[in-house]
Every structure is written in structure tokens, then in C-alpha cells.
């Protein structure tokens, strides 16, 4: 079977795998962004309890390998306390927890990067803390964090490959199945690598366009502190 034939034959399964990969990524980022925002506001909160919760969450996620988290959640929890879930669900949970932890740190650094005179100026006008946050600090923080957030998107997309170990039928798992059948690892893994590369390349290009758009606005609006 020549290369082209092999490619055409594998393509439908690659497409299925890629669909699952993208689904895992989008779901994980959706929940990750929500988790990240909550953890970020916990972390900058005045309440010690909330800060502690956020710190513990981020430290646990950052301090343990994703692979171990995936095994623990999918195999460990079901064996230990009998809660079972599908491998896709487990995958989304693990990836969301990870993206959320790292995004919360990114969001926090963005908020911290906004000059504290901005908050003071808004408060001095009579705006409440939350109004000042929403109207003055966050719009500036968003611009600052966009490159890091896109970077996290890419990391999450790559992390989906690790979910193959618990059997979620994403692109990497699909490749493994094909190779187990035909022993054409060189071609199949090579094609998979190229497919990941193309998706991430497109994502990077889109983010560059967004960054350029925003930095246009920035050159007009924000060199001053």
C-alpha cells in the first residue's frame, strides 16, 4: 500500500479523531476559562479562605503531572469510591482543571499588570470596587493577557494527546489504533504530527491577527500609565 493510499484510507478515522480532539479542547477551554476566572477572583479576594482555596487548587494542579491526574480521576476514583465516568468526561474534567489553574495565574498577572493608579482613579470618582474592576481594570488586563491565553489554548490542545491513555478516542488514540493494526508507525505518526501542526499553526495565525488588531488600538490608546 503506498503512502497516498494509506493516507486516504486513514483519513476518515483521522477526521473522527480530530473532531474529538477539538471537542475536548473547546470544552476544556470553556470550563477552564470559567474556573480560571473564579480562581483568579478568589486569589485576589480579601477573604483568606477564598485565597487559600485558590492557592491549594493551583498548587495541586501545578504540582502533579497531567498523566497522573488523568489516571487518578479515571481509574483511581472509580476503583476507590465507585464513581464511574466515561473517558471523555474524565478527560474534559482533567483538562479543564489544568487549563483553569494556569489561566487563573495568567488572569491574575494581567490584573496585577494594570497600574494600580487606574483602580485608585476610578475609586476616587466614586465607583465601587466591582464597577472599577469591570469598567477600568479588566478591559486593560484582557489586552495584556491575550498572548498568554492563546498560548494556554495551544498547550491545552497538545495536552489532549495525554487523554489517549484513558482511551478517549481523540486523534492520538486513533493513530495508536491504526498503527497497532498495520505497523506503519512512521507514516501514521508523521501524518498525525502534521495534522496537529496545521491546527496549531492556524490557531497561532488567528491569534496574531487578534493581537495586531488590539495593539493597533493600544498604540492609539495606552502607552501612558
Amino acid at each position: 500500500m503506498d503512502f497516498f493510499e494509506l493516507f486516504m484510507q486513514s483519513l476518515p478515522r483521522f477526521a473522527d479523531g480530530m473532531r474529538t480532539t477539538l471537542f475536548l479542547t473547546v470544552a476544556a477551554l470553556f470550563f477552564g476559562i470559567i474556573l480560571g476566572m473564579i480562581a483568579c477572583f478568589f486569589k485576589i479576594s480579601k477573604l483568606k479562605v477564598l485565597r487559600a482555596i485558590a492557592t491549594i487548587y493551583v498548587d495541586i494542579i501545578r504540582g502533579t503531572p497531567l498523566l497522573v491526574q488523568a489516571y487518578f480521576l479515571y481509574f483511581g476514583i472509580s476503583q476507590g469510591i465507585g464513581i464511574t465516568m466515561t473517558n471523555t468526561t474524565a478527560g474534559i474534567i482533567v483538562l479543564s482543571l489544568n487549563a483553569g489553574a494556569y489561566l487563573s495565574e495568567i488572569f491574575r498577572s494581567g490584573i496585577n499588570a494594570v497600574n494600580k493608579g487606574q483602580m485608585e482613579a476610578a475609586r476616587s470618582l466614586g465607583l465601587s470596587y466591582s464597577k472599577a474592576m469591570i469598567k477600568v481594570v479588566l478591559p486593560q488586563a484582557v489586552r495584556i493577557v491575550i498572548p498568554s491565553v492563546v498560548n494556554q489554548f495551544i498547550i491545552t490542545l497538545k495536552d489532549t494527546t495525554i487523554i489517549s491513555v484513558i482511551g478517549a478516542p481523540e486523534l492520538m488514540k486513533t493513530a495508536n489504533i491504526i498503527v497497532a493494526r498495520n505497523f506503519r508507525g512512521f507514516e501514521i505518526y508523521g501524518m498525525v504530527a502534521i495534522l496537529y501542526f496545521i491546527v496549531i499553526f492556524i490557531l497561532t495565525k488567528i491569534s496574531q491577527v487578534i493581537e495586531r488588531r488590539l495593539s493597533n488600538g493600544k498604540s492609539k490608546s495606552s502607552q501612558s500609565a
Binding site: N115, G117, Q118, E120, A121, A122, V136, P139, Q140, R143, G217, S221, S222, Q223, S224, A225
Partner: peptide, 8 residues
């Protein structure tokens, strides 16, 4: 430092 809102 003025502290004008740069995004507005």
C-alpha cells in the same frame, strides 16, 4: 501620574 483610563 494623571491616571487617565488609556482604553477610553
Amino acid at each position: 501620574q494623571f491616571n487617565l483610563f488609556p482604553h477610553l
